[in-house]
C-alpha cells in the first residue's frame, strides 16, 4: 500500500478542550477569516459552526461575492490538508475518490487517492459536474469513507466539504437533487457587502491579497478536540422539543411540498451546540437554534409551485415558521 491512509479504523478521540479554549480558538479563526471577508461576521460564524458540527457547507450565491474566498480563508486558518476540486462536466468520479492503477514494478494495483482525501475539500461550482461525479463526492460526505476495489479507505478527520454553486447561471448545470442537498448541514448565502465593508475591501485589496498572508491559527487536532467539546454541550428536552416543532412545522406547512428530514433536526441541534460553545456556554439556547434555522432547513425544503409562482422561497417559509412556532411548546404561555 503506497497510500498512507489506513483502512477504516475509528480514530482515537482526543480529550475535549475546555470551554475557554474552545471560545478562544473559535474567535481566533473568526478574526482570521474576517480579515479576508469584510463585514460578514455572522456568515463566517455559521460556516465555522458547521465545520465544528462535522457538517458540510453549501455556499450558494452569485459570482464574485467571496464564496471561494470564504472557503479558502477558512481552510487556511486551520493547519490541515486542503484539497480543491473545480467541478466541470468532464470531471470523473475517480478524480474525486481516487483510483487503483497498475504498478508495473510491484506488479500490483496501487490505490491513487483522489481529491477527497484531505481535511477540507473545496468543491467549486459543484452543480457543473455530472450527476455521477456529484454522487461520488456526496457518498464520501455522508459515509466519510471510500471503497475502491473492495478496499475501504477511511477519510481524514476533521473532514469537511465546502461546496459552492451559482444559483443564477443554470445553463449546462446539473442542480443537486434534494436527497444530495440534504447531505449539506447548511446552506449559506454571503450576499453583497454593505458600502463601508466594500470601501474597506478596496483599501485592503489595493496593497496585497490578504488571503496570501493568512496564517493558520489552529491545527486539525484542535479542531477534532473542539468537535468533541461541542458534542458535550447540554441540550435540554425543551430545546429538543422546539427543534422538533420547527422541523415538524416545515412538514405541515402549506407552502412546502416536502419538509425537512430528521437528519435536519439532528444537524440543527449539533450546530446549535457549536454556537453555544462558541459563546462560552455549556448549554444551547433557542436563540442558537433560531440563528441556524434558515441555513440548516431552507435548502432542504421543496416549495410548492404556488409558492414559487408567488415569488416566495423556502427562506421566507422558514422565517415565517420561526415567527409562529412557540419557543416553549404548550408547557406555558410563552
Amino acid at each position: 500500500m503506497a497510500f498512507d491512509s489506513s483502512p477504516a479504523q475509528p480514530p482515537q478521540a482526543p480529550p475535549p478542550s475546555n470551554p475557554q479554549e474552545f471560545k478562544a480558538t473559535a474567535e481566533a479563526v473568526l478574526t482570521n477569516v474576517e480579515w479576508v471577508i469584510e463585514g460578514k461576521a455572522q456568515t463566517i460564524r455559521l460556516a465555522l459552526a458547521v465545520m465544528l458540527a462535522e457538517g458540510h457547507l453549501l455556499l450558494e450565491d452569485v459570482p464574485g461575492v467571496g464564496k471561494t474566498q470564504l472557503a479558502k480563508a477558512l481552510a487556511r486558518s486551520v493547519d490541515c490538508s486542503v484539497r480543491r476540486i473545480q467541478f466541470t462536466p468532464d470531471l470523473l468520479p475517480s478524480d474525486v475518490t481516487g483510483v487503483s492503477v497498475f504498478d508495473p514494478e510491484k506488479r500490483d494495483f496501487v490505490f491513487k487517492p483522489g481529491a477527497v482525501f484531505g481535511n477540507l475539500i473545496l468543491g467549486d461550482e459543484i452543480n457543473r459536474a455530472s450527476p455521477k461525479t456529484q454522487a461520488a463526492l456526496l457518498e464520501c460526505m455522508e459515509e466519510r469513507q471510500v471503497t475502491i476495489d473492495g478496499n475501504t479507505y477511511r477519510l481524514r478527520s476533521p473532514f469537511m466539504v465546502i461546496a459552492t454553486q451559482n444559483p443564477v447561471e443554470m445553463e449546462g448545470t446539473y442542480p443537486l437533487p434534494e436527497a444530495q442537498r440534504d447531505r449539506f448541514a447548511a446552506r449559506l448565502a454571503i450576499g453583497y457587502p454593505d458600502v463601508n465593508a466594500e470601501m474597506a475591501m478596496l483599501d485592503h485589496r489595493g496593497e496585497y491579497n490578504p488571503l496570501e498572508s493568512l496564517q493558520p491559527v489552529c491545527n486539525g487536532e484542535a479542531i477534532v478536540r473542539m468537535i468533541a467539546t461541542a458534542r458535550a454541550v447540554h441540550v435540554s428536552p425543551e430545546l429538543k422539543r422546539y427543534a422538533v416543532d420547527l422541523v415538524n412545522a416545515t412538514r405541515s406547512n402549506a407552502q412546502v411540498r416536502l419538509g425537512a428530514s430528521p437528519r435536519a433536526t439532528l444537524q440543527l441541534l449539533r450546530c446549535a451546540q457549536v454556537l453555544a460553545a462558541m459563546d462560552g456556554r455549556e448549554f444551547a439556547l433557542p436563540d442558537d437554534v433560531q440563528q441556524l434555522a434558515v441555513p440548516v432547513l431552507a435548502h432542504r425544503l421543496i416549495p410548492t409551485t404556488e409558492t414559487t409562482m408567488g415569488g416566495g422561497d423556502t427562506t421566507g417559509v422558514v422565517a415565517d415558521i420561526l415567527r409562529h412556532v412557540p419557543v416553549v411548546s404548550r408547557m406555558g404561555r410563552f
Binding site: 439556547l285 433557542p286 436563540d287 419557543v327 404561555r333 410563552f334
Partner: peptide, 25 residues
C-alpha cells in the same frame, strides 16, 4: 418570575408573542 415578566409586558402593552426566546423578549 418569568411568567410575571410576561404578564407585566402584556399589562403594559409591550407586544410579545410566544415565538420569542427569552433573550428576544
Amino acid at each position: 418570575a418569568w411568567d410575571e415578566t410576561l404578564d407585566l409586558a402584556a399589562d403594559y402593552g409591550v407586544a410579545l408573542n410566544d415565538s420569542l426566546t427569552p433573550k428576544q423578549t
